[in-house]
Design a protein around this nucleic acid. Structure first.
Lengths: 139, 139
DNA sequence: CCTTGACTTAGAGCGCACTCGAAGCCCTAG
DNA sequence: CTAGGGCTTCGAGTGCGCTCTAAGTCAAGG
């Protein structure tokens, strides 16, 4: 598979795939006689794994650490596990925060829905103090 | 309340608070006779609202749109509601993606736990689905 | 009085993760 | 034979969201 097709399949641009290889997030791809990258389909699994790390907010430098550890072999096994567990904790925390934000957003939208696009939105306040301040939990 | 205290209370730096004012995310704060900003505690509500938008991934330019609409008054009421509903949809989608990523991460971590820090972790036998990873970077 | 520290401004600089451009090579279809 | 499209390299450029600097003002404490 050439880079164009891989790009289509994984959803990243060819530019980005080359960039990932340059920084070490992707292994150096074999080149055909004319120097073009020739990928094995298995690379898609790694790219999907990277996508999940990225989606969950892991910075590239940490993915790089993981990739490097992997390249370093078995002796880094438990360290890799630890990295992932630590990351999972951050993800869980973030997820909880997001859910709380979503509930606040729901409340605010409910307010917008109820208050019938009229002045009463401003339940008194003006300027920068209206309903936006929302019913806050704590603080 | 002066900017230093507001910074402490809201968790942003004074630099960032001034930056927010500059770009229009915070209203122009009243200055005391010596030119220093003097905040009302109510600004904390707005900052908390902004924090939630930020946490849920809204870019500053969209928060700015919202802030501008609010400043424009009641005629933008339904538009603001629409903006928030649209944002909520994106948040829900993202949340679902995150949860899926978290489940994959759980599986992978389970794999790391089971495979008792031995070779079999890497090389070839990653359950087709657990060890989505396969490369040897660098090179 | 004088120092300390928090504040003011406009603007420059930074880290991240891409994203693009330029110049050139190779293969294929017309 | 030639044009087109996709590929190559690598360095420069982009957009975001801060983050910091420099030079200066001001109020309080020793």
């Amino acid at each position: 598979m050439k880079i164009g097709e891989l790009a289509k399949r994984c959803g990243l641009s060819a530019h980005t795939l080359r960039y990932y290889e340059r920084i070490g997030l992707l292994p150096y791809a074999d080149r055909d006689r004319s120097g073009q990258r020739d990928y094995d389909a298995s690379i898609l699994d790694w790219l999907e794994f990277l996508r999940r790390l990225k989606t969950t907010g892991m910075p590239i430098r940490d993915m790089l650490r993981y990739a490097q550890m992997r390249a370093d072999g078995d002796e880094t096994f438990s360290e890799r596990g630890a990295l992932l567990r630590k990351h999972r904790e951050r993800v869980r925390t973030h997820l909880a925060d997001l859910e709380a934000c979503l509930r606040s957003l729901d409340k605010k939208i409910a307010f917008y829905g109820k208050a019938k696009q009229r002045t009463d939105a401003d339940d008194g306040l003006h300027e920068h103090e209206d309903e936006d301040t929302a019913p806050r939990p704590g603080a």
